[in-house]
Design a binder for these strands. Structure first.
Ligand code: FES
Ligand code: FES
Lengths: 141, 141
DNA sequence: TTATAATAAGACTAAATCAGTCCAATTAAG
DNA sequence: CTTAATTGGACTGATTTAGTCTTATTATAA
């Protein structure tokens, strides 16, 4: 049960941008160097985030990437979900796959709710929360 | 982000046993047939669960497996954790691995708490809860 | 109008992990 | 002492993950 490296890197990259001035573009080269994420891999990650609307990118000289919205309007879920292809914790929750036991399955409901609870946390936490929280994060408790 | 097939199967197998009479032993052959889990794989799963104390096994003629405790005293966590080798959602939370950005990492605390919240659910839900809950599971809400 | 500095898109590859199998050894019952 | 079972561990094939490479495309500036 781990998030992919891509999702993990994605968070780091978005966090990096969020801590920098918003009115500039940052080249992949620069971000890669600063975060120690392999440049070519980082490129793919950004491509995904551009498609999902979290990041804006600009080609050509002076180009680079920037946040599409301010950090307070980007949730953790918005960064993680597009980078994490398979989000079903167990078979029951993964469409395509079907399980021979699904009819008498006593676990599916439990997992569905548990997973939902997890996503609700990701949905209700913004990148800004992470930066501000610093050491005091996740759930208002 | 998915649990391994082994953990998934493990739940199914334990649920199967929990719904059967407790004072008998069940051969892998029988369980494999009933649940449609490949026998050799199921064998390995039970070996793990025996080691972690959830299942009792008996060699020889008339042998087989049974729950080590009654379903109300087995939590979901006790079944999942031993079958799921890597339980750290992100790098930050996985011992061995170290991340070049760990010092300035704004995400680690968030993930730690989120993951903890997840485990608390697994810890506070028993196999009996699943069977009884049937269609009304996960968290008291 | 051309050189250059950037991202886009997608094919490709290496390594790791996962899921599953096989087999020789052990144990207990009949 | 034969048979029915699990044990433990090595082994394998398939899939997924992480990362790279290569060829376009686009924008800026000299
Ligand atoms: S384990 Fe197959 S449907 Fe739940
Ligand atoms: S991402 Fe590396 S320590 Fe958090």
């Amino acid at each position: 049960m781990k998030l992919t490296q891509g999702a993990d890197y994605g968070m780091a990259a978005v966090l990096y941008l969020s801590q920098k001035s918003e009115d500039r573009r940052y080249s992949l080269d620069e971000i890669s160097r600063a975060t120690e994420i392999p440049e070519e891999f980082l490129r793919k990650i950004f491509q995904t985030l551009v498609k999902s609307g979290v990041i804006n990118s600009f080609k050509g000289r002076g180009g680079g990437v920037s946040l599409a919205r301010s950090a307070k309007d980007i949730t953790v879920a918005e960064v993680i979900k597009p980078l994490e292809e398979e989000m079903g914790l167990v078979r029951c929750l993964r469409e395509k796959e079907d399980c021979p036991r699904s009819s008498e399955c006593m676990a599916s409901n439990f997992w569905r709710k548990t997973q939902q609870n997890f996503f609700e946390i990701l949905n209700s936490t913004t990148i800004k929360d992470l930066i501000e929280g610093g050491k005091q994060n996740a759930r208002k408790d």
